[in-house]
Design a binder for these strands. Sequence first.
DNA 1: GATCGCTGTCACACAACTGTCACAATACTT
DNA 2: AAGTATTGTGACAGTTGTGTGACAGCGATC
Lengths: 228, 228
Amino acid sequence: MAANILVVEDEPAIQELLAFNVTQCGFRAIQAMDVASATAEINRALPDLILLDWMLPDTPGVELARRLRADQRTRNIPIIMLTARTDERDKVMGLESGADDYITKPFSPRELMARIRAVLRRRMPQMSEDTVRAEGLELSPTTHRVSANGSSLDLGPTEFRLLHFFMTHAERVYSRAQLLDQVWGDHVFVEERTVDVHIRRLRQAMEPSGLDRLVQTVRGSGYRFSSN
Amino acid sequence: MAANILVVEDEPAIQELLAFNVTQCGFRAIQAMDVASATAEINRALPDLILLDWMLPDTPGVELARRLRADQRTRNIPIIMLTARTDERDKVMGLESGADDYITKPFSPRELMARIRAVLRRRMPQMSEDTVRAEGLELSPTTHRVSANGSSLDLGPTEFRLLHFFMTHAERVYSRAQLLDQVWGDHVFVEERTVDVHIRRLRQAMEPSGLDRLVQTVRGSGYRFSSN
DNA sequence: GATCGCTGTCACACAACTGTCACAATACTT
DNA sequence: AAGTATTGTGACAGTTGTGTGACAGCGATC
């Protein structure tokens, strides 16, 4: 879930520092030095968050923030304002113009990163009742619990994700490669046979409840979650 | 610690009016304009009471009420329905869907507040003294005291807030980052592992009473407060 | 200004999980 | 029936995540 972060800052040194830290934290940094190029970048692809300097060569940062808030498509993009000013009125102005958070220079990289993460977390909340039920199984991501016919199952993280995927994608057959993409992530490189091992571990955990039959092998194709 | 009241109302003017009155009475108002954002707020932190408008842009209020009643975690949250209708059948429907009380617009703020207090008194007697009880634990924010099975616990400020958060948000798993946000605050920057240390200190304090098992580790995800 | 309690951080110990392999068991093919 | 491809299984070592004790900084209190 590498979020794209647009960094709008005219001072090259600070721009570099920001980009470095942002990248370091696993986000993708898109750089812009003024409002004009920032607007161009935003039109090209909507970023997930914007780090916006207060003072910019062409237009004040607040002005950009206000414009983004007025536009339907960009209304919900979180904005963190950067400024050298500590004036309380400016802070109010920044937040009123639609910024989600506000940070004054000089700032510690760690503080900045923490704020970025906090804002992203706040803006991307999980959905409602996410408990999945099927065939006597009940799995809830929020409580991180699984129960089979009442008694609770003890699964490792990978088996948990695997079962969750299966329960939300029942009946259909998935190849080992597909399961690796979906459960492990596309960027991870592991042997396909590793899937077999985790399938086995999952079945083993489900065996006491007799529900291990739900995880079926489709020879030559992959695995399937089904009651038949 | 004042009760959190979630106000779900799409009309901005009424939303403001409600929030103002609720705040005036010493409660904390959390605002939502539709069922979707209300659901998000509920998942973020369980409110102590919900003021729910009948007509909402995305989904009928009754529908949300029904969903909340179906979920274990939200079953006991009191709901007061707001509506412009005076139709007797609607009243029945509202109460049948699980609402605790029902009030028709236009209403006097004083009447509304009276009903809120009445419902809170009825639904959570301990709420009037804002004491939280669970599993032999008793925590009182006002007196800043905790007791486990009768004998009092000696907690530091952070451990106290941590336990309070856990007790009011049982079952659900929270990541270290979420705990930092909720217990330390968004703007505080400390290492995630610091959470581990305070968890340990909390467990240590609860150990003599044997209640340290309530604070559970969910490997790879975070921590959870639960009796199972 | 010394003491005390609390906090955040670190280093290390310990435990759980992961991916991989070798080999056994099974299913298909000829 | 033998041979081949595919999957199941147990073991193992490296990796990652968590528990724990120690410690220094910081305010508050006296």
